[in-house]
C-alpha cells in the first residue's frame, strides 16, 4: 500500500447471483508497475481485471484508479475508461470498420481529436506494432496475431496510463503468440503500467514486477517472479505451477 499506487483494490467482493466470484480481493499497483495475474480457469482473474474499468461492477469493497473511486457514477467511470486501455482475449475489433477506422473511432468521438491528427498517431502505433501496411484492410482479413496487435494499437491510441490485458494470447495459434508478446514486452520497456492476465510464464518471468496467483476468487499469493517461481509459498500454487510448467 504505497502512496504512488495508481490502482488500488480493497476487499473487493463480487457475486453472480449466488456464485461468489471474488472474495475480498485486495491489490495495489504502483505507477509503472507490471503485474501478471495467473491462476486456474474460473479463479476470478478475468472478473478482477474487468472490475478495474468497470466492465463488471463489484458489489463490496473499494476500487480506486488514479485517485478516482469507481462507483455507479457514470462520469467517474467515463474518466477512468479514458485512462485505462484494455485488450481482450477475442480481440473484439469492430468488423465493419477498417483497421485505421478501428484505431481512430474512439479518439475522434471520445477525445475530440481531428481526424488528420489522430490518423498520423494511429499510423505511428501501427508501425510500432509492425503492421502499417494493413491499415486499410478489414479485421476479418488479418491473422489472429495481427488482429491482436491492432487491438493493442487501438487501446494505445487513446493514450492510456494503464493497460489491461485479459488473456491476450490464449485465442492465438502458437506461432502468433510471440509477435504479440514482443509488442507487450516492448510496451513494458517504455514504462507503461500493465496488468496482464496470462499463462505465458516466460513473459511473466521476463517482464513482471510482481506475480499474483488467484484461485477460487481470492488472491492466494503474490510476490516477485523470482520468489514466485523458485519458492512458492502455498501448496495450491505449487500444484498449479507443476501443471503449467510440465510441458
Amino acid at each position: 500500500m504505497t502512496e504512488t499506487a495508481i490502482i488500488e483494490l480493497r476487499k473487493v467482493g463480487k457475486w453472480y447471483n449466488s456464485y461468489h466470484a471474488l472474495r475480498d480481493v485486495s491489490l495495489s499497483v504502483a505507477k509503472g508497475e507490471k503485474v501478471v495475474v495467473c491462476g486456474p480457469s474460473g479463479s476470478g482473474k478475468s472478473t478482477m481485471i474487468r472490475c478495474i474499468n468497470r466492465l463488471e461492477a463489484h458489489q463490496t469493497g473499494h476500487i480506486v484508479v488514479d485517485g478516482i473511486e469507481l462507483t455507479d457514477d457514470v462520469k467517474a467511470v467515463e474518466k477512468i475508461r479514458r485512462k485505462v486501455g484494455m485488450v481482450f482475449q477475442n480481440f473484439n475489433l469492430f468488423p465493419h470498420l477498417t483497421v485505421l477506422q478501428n484505431l481512430t473511432l474512439a479518439p475522434i468521438w471520445v477525445r475530440g481529436m481531428a481526424k488528420s491528427e489522430i490518423e498520423e498517431i494511429a499510423m505511428m502505433y501501427l508501425k510500432r506494432v509492425r503492421i502499417p501496411d494493413q491499415a486499410h484492410k478489414f479485421p476479418g482479413q488479418l491473422s489472429g496475431g495481427q488482429q491482436q496487435r491492432v487491438a493493442i494499437a487501438r487501446a494505445l491510441c487513446m493514450r492510456p496510463e494503464i493497460m489491461l490485458f485479459d488473456e491476450p494470447t490464449s485465442a492465438l495459434d502458437p506461432e502468433m503468440v510471440k509477435e504479440v508478446l514482443d509488442v507487450m514486452t516492448e510496451l513494458a520497456g517504455e514504462g507503461m503500467t500493465m496488468v496482464c492476465v496470462t499463462h505465458e510464464m516466460g513473459f511473466a518471468r521476463q517482464v513482471a514486477d510482481s506475480i499474483v496467483f488467484m484461485a477460487e476468487g481470492s488472491i492466494i499469493e503474490s510476490g516477485s517472479p523470482a520468489e514466485f517461481f523458485e519458492n512458492p509459498k502455498s501448496e495450491r500454487t505449487r500444484q498449479f505451477l507443476g501443471q503449467i510448467l510440465e510441458h
Binding site: N53, L55, E78, R81, R82, V84, G85, M86, F88, N90, N92, L93, F94, L105, A106, W109, V110, R154, A155, M158
Partner: peptide, 11 residues
Amino acid sequence: GQTEAGLALGL
C-alpha cells in the same frame, strides 16, 4: 464483446 470493447474505449 463489441459493446465491451466500446465501453473500454470510453464510448
